[in-house]
């Protein structure tokens, strides 16, 4: 709550968040990535590594659920 005093106003197009890194994304994305959807361009291209990490997170959660929820003896029936 203390921090909101200094935050930029809502919807301010000149806030630092919008000025510094993003304009490059917006102007160059069409030429560099050939994708009109900017969110996809950033997600899959510039920050594709984060998307890989995200996929790994899903994989981890899936493996975790299998690890945790398999009942004993069930594995033996479904194998071979």
């Amino acid at each position: 709550m203390y921090g909101t005093i200094d935050m930029p106003d809502w919807g301010d197009p000149n806030s630092p968040a919008s000025i510094h890194v993003s304009p490059q994304y917006i102007t160059n994305a069409a030429t560099e990535t050939a994708t009109p959807n900017l969110v996809t361009a950033v997600l899959a291209d510039y920050r594709g590594y984060d998307t890989l990490g995200e996929t790994v997170v899903i994989f981890t959660a899936g493996m975790a659920c299998i690890l945790l929820l398999r009942r004993r003896g069930e594995g033996k029936k479904t194998r071979r």
Binding site: V39, A41, R47, D50, G53
Partner: peptide, 9 residues
Amino acid sequence: PLPHVLMLT
């Protein structure tokens, strides 16, 4: 677009 991307993750 950047915050949207981060939030998808």
